[in-house]
Amino acid sequence: MFYPNSPQTSPQLTQIPYGQQYAMMQRQIQQPYHPFATTEPQARLYPYHYQGPIQQEQGGFITQQSTAASPQYVQMRVTPVDQSIMSGYPNQTANGSSSSSFNYNIHPQQQQQQQQQQQQLRHHAMPVGSVPLQDDRYRKQLIVNYLAPDVTSTDLHELFSRFGELDGARIIYDKQTNMSKGYGFVYFCHAEDAKEAVERMSGYEFHGKWLKVGYSTNPLNIVPSNSSPYVHAGSRGAAG
């Protein structure tokens, strides 16, 4: 039997160049792979992502010199942007860049009308829970959420009447099932009393439920100042 490094198959040491006398086997001759043993700084910083320098080929596509990437890492192929796409944008300079302001050559009167329309939209648009300043009635009506099913309009009136005089209180019921929808409205005579009720009743436990109280901004629920107070009856038909 002959071994790869046996004296019968191995040459004389004098015939082997210096430095390879003890590297006779194939696994010894093959050098191990060192990912950080390279002179390129990109490979030292990113050993798993770097795959060699990027070269520009004919046709405008950018390719990489090395083989496919590892399945664990996804390499994105980048193509140059066609400058003709950006030619339609206004205020574009000769080098292809555009300024931040756009001039669509709008007539001054049209621009003024658009600004007025935007101001009107901001004036009428009102986020949930906010209180408008032009109508004091919005500051007097509250919406009470997360009410228990057994709470009546009379219970709601008695709960909030300790903060001040009320114009009314009612629970909203479903017309088909005649069941409470879980929320109601309270109408105060003074805005200061309503503000105190919002601050003190939010998070209050009532009939096993934690109440959420806020201003009601729905104009359909506003009680006119010259109208008669609501009837605080315990029956659902009268309260709904």
Rank of each mutant, 00 (worst) to 15 (best):
K195N: 12
N91Y: 06
C189F: 03
R162H: 14
Y50H: 15
G237P: 06
Q118Y: 12
L45S: 14
Y33I: 09
N218L: 01
Q26V: 03
R139M: 12
R139E: 04
D136Y: 12
G237D: 05
N105F: 05
A125L: 11
A23R: 13
I171T: 05
M126V: 10
T9A: 10
Q75W: 00
Y183K: 00
M25V: 10
D135L: 05
R236Q: 08
G96C: 11
S84A: 11
H232K: 09
I54Q: 13
V198W: 15
P149H: 14
R200D: 03
T154E: 15
I54T: 11
E196C: 12
L147N: 02
D82T: 11
Q119E: 06
S225C: 15
I29L: 06
P11T: 09
M86R: 15
A169M: 00
N226G: 05
N91W: 04
S84H: 05
N105W: 13
Q118L: 10
Q75I: 00
H123L: 07
G164I: 01
P47G: 07
Y204T: 13
Y89P: 12
D150K: 15
Y50I: 10
P71W: 02
Q75L: 00
T9P: 06
M76A: 14
Q119S: 09
R139S: 07
S225Q: 06
S101P: 12
I143F: 01
F206N: 01
S66K: 15
K181C: 02
E57H: 11
F206C: 03
A239P: 10
P90V: 08
Q83E: 06
Y187I: 01
T217F: 02
A197G: 03
S99A: 05
G214D: 06
N218R: 03
H34L: 07
Y48W: 04
N178F: 12
Q83V: 04
Q64Y: 03
S84Q: 06
H124K: 08
E158I: 15
S130G: 08
S98L: 06
V198T: 06
V213T: 05
T63E: 08
K195F: 14
T154Q: 09
Q118W: 11
Q12M: 06
V151N: 01
A37D: 11
Q26G: 15
N105P: 07
M126H: 06
T154K: 03
Q56Y: 04
L133S: 06
S235H: 14
Y104Q: 10
K195A: 14
H232T: 09
Q72H: 11
R137K: 03
D150V: 15
R139K: 09
P224N: 03
Y187H: 01
V198I: 10
F61V: 12
G52H: 13
V81D: 11
R162F: 13
Q75H: 12
Q109I: 12
E199K: 15
T14V: 06
Q141G: 00
N145D: 01
Y146A: 01
H123P: 06
E165Y: 15
D174V: 03
P47N: 10
I54H: 12
T9V: 11
L121M: 11
A169D: 01
Y46H: 15
Q20Y: 04
Q111H: 10
R200S: 04
Y18I: 07
Y73D: 12
G168A: 02
T39E: 07
Y48E: 11
Y89T: 07
P149G: 05
R122V: 04
P17F: 02
P53I: 04
I54S: 12
K175H: 15
P35E: 10
Q119I: 07
R170P: 00
P11Y: 04
E57Y: 08
E192Y: 13
S130T: 05
P219I: 01
A68P: 10
H34P: 08
T39H: 06
Q114A: 09
V213M: 02
C189Q: 10
A238G: 04
Y138W: 10
Q75P: 08
Q134S: 06
Y173D: 00
E192R: 14
Q26I: 02
E199Q: 14
Q72W: 04
A23C: 07
H190A: 13
L211M: 12
L156T: 01
A239E: 08
G19W: 12
N221K: 14
F188L: 01
A125N: 10
K175F: 02
E57Q: 10
A194V: 02
P224Y: 08
I54W: 06
G19A: 09
E57R: 14
D155R: 04
A37E: 09
H49C: 04
Q20D: 08
T177K: 03
Y138V: 02
A191I: 06
V198G: 03
T67Y: 08
A23G: 10
H190L: 04
A239L: 05
A169R: 00
P71E: 08
Y187S: 01
N218T: 01
R200Q: 06
P219T: 03
T217K: 04
Q26P: 07
A239G: 05
S84K: 15
L220W: 01
Y89M: 09
R170T: 02
I106M: 12
S87Q: 07
M24G: 10
S6N: 10
G240I: 05
D150C: 13
R236P: 07
Q12T: 07
S227V: 08
P11D: 04
A68M: 08
V213Y: 00
Y18H: 13
L156N: 00
S228L: 09
C189K: 15
R139T: 08
I85V: 11
Y173C: 13
R27I: 02
D155F: 05
S180F: 00
P224E: 02
D150R: 15
G203L: 03
Q28D: 04
H34E: 15
A169P: 01
G184V: 02
G164Q: 00
D135C: 07
Q72R: 14
E40W: 04
Q119A: 13
N5D: 12
K181E: 02
Q65A: 07
Q21I: 03
A197Q: 00
A23P: 12
R44Q: 05
Y48T: 14
R77N: 03
K209S: 02
I143W: 01
M201F: 06
T177G: 02
D193F: 15
Q31H: 08
Y89D: 04
R200P: 01
F163K: 01
R77S: 05
P108E: 12
E199V: 14
G164T: 00
P35K: 15
N91I: 05
P17E: 04
L142K: 01
T154M: 07
K175W: 09
M179T: 13
L45R: 15
S130F: 10
M179N: 04
Q109L: 09
L133C: 09
N5G: 07
S180L: 02
D155L: 13
V74L: 09
T217M: 03
Y173S: 07
F163M: 02
Y215A: 02
L13Q: 11
G240D: 07
T63N: 10
Q120K: 14
M179Q: 13
K181G: 01
Q58V: 06
I106F: 10
S228V: 10
N226T: 04
G164S: 00
G88H: 08
